[in-house]
Amino acid sequence: MLIDILIPIVTMTALAVLFAGILAVANIAFSVEKDPRVEEILEALPGANCGACGYAGCAAFAEAVAKGEAPVNGCPVGREKVAEEICRIMGVSGEQESEAERHTARLVCQGTHEAAKTKMDYHGVQDCRAATLINGGDKTCPYGCLGLGTCVRACPFDAIQMGDDGLPDIDQELCTGCGKCVEACPKDVISMFPSSAEVMVACNSKAKGAPVLKACKVGCIACGKCVKVCPQDAISMVDNLAVIDSHKCTNCGTCIEACPTNAIVRV
């Protein structure tokens, strides 16, 4: 009777001990040296796995930093705070690394409820992607912001709020430049700008002058005045839309004065 209970107990225990032994030996025999700094860096990172650094998630970035392949301040989300922490872990001083220019997302549309006309009443799914499927959305301008907040929901850092004027308000301080909203926007009306670019064309319309005037009070009508007045030759017309070359632009603001529709603004 006792033996009937003992045999299975002993067998199972023996098996368990055997496997434990094998695993214990294997743990020592097959141990791989890992850089302890990788773990530490990973701890310091925000852990959003947004990919804004150009690596596949925080773990890949931490590994690259430990190997010296990525800059210590390569995380655009954590900025100085995280960079300092990583500097401490890596034992380098932060000044050695040149600071990469910060890029943030900006809305290139000023088509508020007031400024932009609508061609229909939209009562469908409250999402820009859904609205776009129905004849391009309710705005008369086919390039403008629909203001249904797809970008607000896409932002992992709560940097975008929907304003009362029907346009999303992107908090430039909170924006980490991850680009999730740029990806999510079906109208491509959010773009990334370097922080040095203070003057920007806040319109996305590639239509000619007349249809823009009919659809929106603040659209770029491709009149070309800004191109002529720019002392740096930094502005060009591409697809009926003024484009400012941020490398040449000195933020002088001459174009802002010249623009008849106030489509060019200072941030």
Binding site: L23, A26, F30
Partner: peptide
Amino acid sequence: ILVIAALVQFVEMFLQKV
């Protein structure tokens, strides 16, 4: 179950090294 769990652990360690 015991065998499979131990085996997977072992294989993972083995692969990591080899």
